[in-house]
């Protein structure tokens, strides 16, 4: 058999290495933006400085919390996967309210048989391989796993 890893390589021109490089802090650290005036938080980070809430121009980077609670989930089990996720089905797509009240979209991974992913589930962010850049290099980013800290074993 092949000595290569037979993992999919994304073939989308828009996902260039430069785009992956610029989005690195967002993917690795869930870094968004914070208005230095009114404290409003944003994820993904805002491209401009203007805060839509208070109209002040004092946007600064903000590392969001790494733990949170699932507020909405959808199970992608249609057999018609989105590009780049073909190896990880069924896929639990969730909206997570992080501990600083930022809502982010992500996947809950490492879900065992019989374990339910539903609103209210406590999760924490981990770094996982998302896909490959168009050059073949690995693109890492955050995903969520069930937060079992404080509990022994199981859910």
């Amino acid at each position: 058999m092949s000595q290569e890893f037979p993992e999919a390589i994304v073939r989308l021109d828009t996902f260039s290495s430069a785009v992956w490089y610029r989005g690195k802090r967002g993917r690795y650290l869930i870094e968004g933006s914070k208005c230095g005036n009114c404290g409003e938080l944003f994820f993904p980070p805002r491209a401009g400085l203007l805060c839509p809430a208070c109209l002040e121009r004092k946007m600064e980077p903000h590392r969001c919390a790494e733990g949170g609670v699932v507020v909405a989930q959808a199970l992608d089990d249609m057999g018609f996967p989105a590009w780049g996720y073909g190896d990880d089905l069924p896929r639990h797509m969730v909206v997570v309210r992080l501990d600083d009240n930022v809502h982010v979209m992500g996947d809950v991974v490492d879900v065992g048989p019989g374990e339910e992913v539903a609103a209210g589930l406590r999760v924490r962010a981990v770094l996982r391989k998302h896909r490959r850049e168009d050059t073949g290099a690995w693109a890492y980013g955050f995903r969520f796993v069930r937060d079992t800290k404080g509990e022994k074993g199981g859910s």
Binding site: E7, V109, V126, L127, R128, K129, H130
Partner: peptide, 16 residues
């Protein structure tokens, strides 16, 4: 390993 896990993802989990 999960299909999205490798040496680096485990290293990051342990280090965090």
């Amino acid at each position: 390993l999960g299909s999205d896990e490798d040496t680096l993802t485990l290293a990051v989990s342990a280090a965090r």
